[in-house]
Design a protein around this nucleic acid. Structure first.
Lengths: 133, 133
DNA sequence: CTTGACCCTGTAGTGACTACAGGGTGCATG
DNA sequence: CATGCACCCTGTAGTCACTACAGGGTCAAG
């Protein structure tokens, strides 16, 4: 299959597929006589893995590690578990941050009576030192 | 005050202060005879505003807009409200995404018995097309 | 007069792509 | 056979919000 069909099959942009190749996530495929990339089912599997990992928020480096581990089928699954748990911890940290952020924003917005900027509660909330200028 | 004290007072890196100046968020301050930047209380207020905005997750462009609005004290607060609400909507979208992500990750991790990679549930969950290689 | 902390400019790197510019290929239609 | 068009190629630069130098200058204390 050409890069276009592979991209379509995996909901990826063509440029992104080429970029995965450049950074070594996707092995260079065979080329046609006209120098087009020609992919097989193995490439489709690997790219699907990458995209699913990205959708789950793994970094490209984490996916690189997971791919290396997945290729070594006899190895214990412990390292995979470690990467996934570290990532979950990271997601949970971001979740906590965003939750705090959202409630702070809601509070700031709730106070705004939408008068003039001079007594805007939002602007005031952003100016921790008191009155501006 | 020098750039170092300003940075310390606002929990900002010196390089970041210079960067805010370069992108036009912070006006260029006076210079000493030795070409050092010399900041006054207005710079401190403005940088505090910027940092608080960043801590609330506003983009630099949003802060640029908010600063322009804040400088125009007679204008109605409506545009400020619009920016803040748009940002809150954005944060809430990310929050929903992350929540879904975290539960998906927890599910994947919970299934892992930590045997060999060949029957690792995590790797399998990342390979939506079935068995690898 | 030297040491060390601070400051200066300018450039390049980060992550994960995205967006061209400037070309070549392949196939169907006139 | 020529032409048009969709697709492909390489390579470079841009995104966001900084961060990290390299290679120098300034200033106060000892």
């Amino acid at each position: 299959m050409t890069i276009g069909s592979l991209a379509e099959a995996t909901q990826t942009r063509v440029e992104t597929v080429r970029w995965y190749e450049k950074v070594g996530l996707l092995p260079p495929p065979a080329r046609s006589s006209g120098n087009y990339r020609l992919y097989g089912p193995e490439h489709l599997r690997r790219l699907s893995f990458i995209r699913r990992g990205r959708a789950l928020g793994f970094t490209v480096e984490q996916i690189r590690d997971l791919l290396a581990l997945a290729d070594d089928r006899d190895r214990s699954c412990g390292e995979v578990d470690t990467i996934a748990r570290a990532h979950l911890a990271d997601v949970e940290r971001k979740l906590a941050d965003l939750t705090r952020l959202a409630s702070e924003l809601r509070e700031v917005i709730g106070q705004c009576g939408c008068g003039s900027v001079a007594d805007c509660r939002i602007i005031e909330a952003l100016s921790p030192l008191g009155e501006p200028a």
